[in-house]
Lab assay of single mutants.
Amino acid sequence: MATVKFKYKGEEKEVDISKIKKVWRVGKMISFTYDEGGGKTGRGAVSEKDAPKELLQMLEKQ
């Protein structure tokens, strides 16, 4: 499965596409929420050019 690499609050993070719950576009950025486990929801964003094609496909399906 594909992963998304991004920075959040200065920390490098990587999340599996299957854990992503919601995806939306903000200008040229793709924002998303994902399941961190333990009932927590994380947030992240990547630029449109750095987003994996699976993430862009999720955006188109909504």
Rank of each mutant, 00 (worst) to 15 (best):
P52I: 13
S18W: 09
E48Q: 06
K13Q: 03
G10E: 05
L59H: 06
T3E: 01
K61G: 07
D50I: 07
K21D: 12
G44Y: 02
K28A: 08
E14F: 02
L55W: 11
S18F: 07
G44S: 02
R25A: 15
R25D: 07
G27L: 06
G37M: 11
E54G: 04
K28N: 10
K40A: 15
G39Q: 06
T33I: 12
F32W: 01
E12W: 12
G42Q: 08
I17M: 06
G44N: 02
W24K: 09
D50M: 09
V15C: 04
F6K: 00
E11V: 04
G42Y: 07
S18I: 14
R43T: 14
D35Y: 07
V46Y: 01
V15D: 00
Y34E: 00
K21W: 13
K49Y: 04
E12M: 06
E36M: 09
V26N: 15
T3P: 02
G27E: 07
G10T: 02
G44W: 02
E36P: 05
K40T: 12
L59V: 08
K13V: 05
K22T: 12
A45L: 03
L59I: 15
G27I: 05
R25W: 15
M58Y: 12
L55G: 00
P52L: 04
L55M: 06
V23M: 06
G42H: 10
L56W: 09
G39E: 10
R43D: 07
Q62D: 14
I17H: 02
T33F: 12
E11M: 04
E54N: 08
K53W: 11
I20Y: 00
S47K: 10
G27Y: 07
T41Q: 10
I30F: 11
R25P: 14
L55Y: 00
V15P: 00
Y34L: 01
G27V: 09
K28P: 13
V23Q: 03
D35V: 12
K5C: 02
L56Y: 06
E14T: 08
K9D: 14
T41W: 12
A45D: 15
K22E: 14
G27F: 04
V15L: 03
V46A: 04
L55Q: 01
W24N: 13
K53R: 04
K22D: 15
K19V: 13
K61P: 12
E11P: 00
V15G: 01
K5M: 02
P52Q: 04
G38T: 14
F6N: 01
K21Q: 11
F32R: 00
I17Q: 03
L56A: 15
E14N: 05
V26D: 05
D16I: 11
K40C: 13
